[in-house]
Each structure stands twice: as structure tokens, then as C-alpha cells.
Amino acid sequence: MTAVIETSGLTKRYRGGRPAVDRLDLSVPAGSVFGFLGPNGSGKTTTIRMLMGLIGPTAGTATVLGRPMPRSASSVLPHVGALIEGPALYGFLSGRDNLLRYDSADPAADPRTREARVASALDRVGLSQAAGKKAKAYSLGMKQRLGLAAALLRPRKLLVLDEPTNGLDPQGMREIRTLVRELAADGTTVFLSSHLLDEIEQVCTHAAVMAQGRLITQGPVAELAAGARGRLAVLTPDPAKAVRILTEHGLTGVDREGERVTAEPPEDEAELAGLNAALVHGGVRVRGFGVERASLEDAFVALTGEGFDVAG
């Protein structure tokens, strides 16, 4: 699979600080929905700005659609739609006029089809009704939608979305996820930054995790989640007995929450059957028994060994 975004040793140091992005080697496969995860201040937006040619890297290189950035910005960016750190609009212009403005900024966009493009982009994000309203009268979610519409003005090979669901209602979030899946089905590569783990888990095929400017891991979401071990969970009205028996069998991390008892699963999956038998034999009424697949959040905590906090 070819890479749509490839960085090598990409580093950005803002004036006088520690690196905001530190020797980043990122590889985003074509056709993927790539989740770019990290706590606040971990360097996601900084990376995206470098990829879009808005800021120059302190060191390292980045290629987008096979071409070096920022050098090839004028040939690469017409194929890229981007939403960077929230939408930015001309408040005194209507939603439609905002899009006309952004469309006319693109020298590769045909002026003859501008109106049609803008109308279909508005329609795509559900803003056709509000298109004539001044953008300053838009709600946060409407602004976000208009920003998305700008990114979708033309068919793109790559869509870069920096926290696209910010400020959206649950309905809007679902729409975005549907939109992202549709675009991905059409062959658009989607690069999605977020700090919402379940959002990434729901739509992304691949993910990378950043912390304090460094890349911690990247790969297919399924593999990342598999990297963290699941938990053995037992549902029973006799939790005290279950805890005792599991502990006796040498399981660690045994934990009890009401009628649910969890523990680190044994190394050897084959032991599970024996454990279940032992519980039943010990008089524990087992209502449920199994290993729960690890979520991306478990994977993240396992990787960073810390909560999802801002690093100072």
C-alpha cells in the first residue's frame, strides 16, 4: 500500500520551547481512515500545519500525496480538503459567500462551476436552508459544518480533519462519522485527529498515538487494540466466592464491581476452561464468563502508562 502522508524525522520547535513535534515518522496508507490521537498539546495540530505547508518544519521532511511539502503546496493542496483547529469564517458574509470566497482562492477550481460546487457542498453538510444567513449568526456546530463544507468543495484525495466533531451535537457527530465512511468508501484517505478514543475506534482503520510531541505507536486499529490484553470477566451473584477462587488459581489484578468480577486473563487461553469449571465446582453461580476484547483506551493507557492528561 502506498503512503498518502509520509514524514521522516519531522520536528517543529516553536521559538524557544521544547519541540512541539519531535522526530515524527508517520506513514498514512492510501485509502485508510487514519486516527491521529493524543492528549491536548501533544502536537497534533502542529503536525497538521506542517503537512499543509502552513508552517515550516525545524527539521525532517514531509511528503503528501507523494510530493514534498511545503514545496509542492500549490500542486498538492487542490487535492486536499482540510479543517484545521476549528472553522474560520467571515462573520459578515453569508455561509454561501464564505464558500464562494474559499472556492475562488483555489486557482485549480473552475469558476464556471463554482455556484454548483458551493450548493452541493452546502447540501452535503445539511446547511442548504441556512446558506443565506450571516456566518456570525451560526451556532458552533453550524460553523463546524460550514468549515467541513469548505473542505468538501471539490472531490479530494485526502481529507485532513482536525477534531471535526468539536461542538457538534450527537446527531451531528453521527453524521460526520457517516460522511467519513462514505468518503472513505469513495477512495478518499481521511486523516482525522481527535482526543476522543471511541470516535477513532468507531471509524478508523488505522491510528497513531502521540504524546508530548512524540509518536508512541501507529498501525491498524485492530492490532493496536490487540496489543493491550483484555480482561477476564465473570458475572455472578456470588462475587466474593469468585474472587477467592480466581485468586487461589493465581490470577492477578482481581477486581470486583457489584456482580462483576474481573481479572488479568491467564497467559494460556487453554486454562480458561479449567477456571470456569473450578468456579462452578466451587459453588459459584456463573451467569457470564469470558475475555473482553481490549478497547483502544486500554491500549492507550497501556502505552502511555498514564491517564489522558495534558503534559505540562
Binding site: 499543509m52 505547508g53 486536499v80 482540510a82 484545521i84 476549528g86 474560520a88 469564517l89 474559499y102 486557482p107
Partner: peptide
């Protein structure tokens, strides 16, 4: 300051052209 500059540049308006 309005942030619209970044969207013009990724459109891409081109810096010299803009």
C-alpha cells in the same frame, strides 16, 4: 487574526498570489 488566512492558504490561494 480571524483564522481565515489558513483556509485561504490551504485552498491553496498561494502566498505570492494572495
Amino acid at each position: 487574526s480571524a483564522g481565515t488566512l489558513r483556509y485561504l492558504l490551504v485552498a491553496p490561494a498561494g502566498r505570492a498570489r494572495l
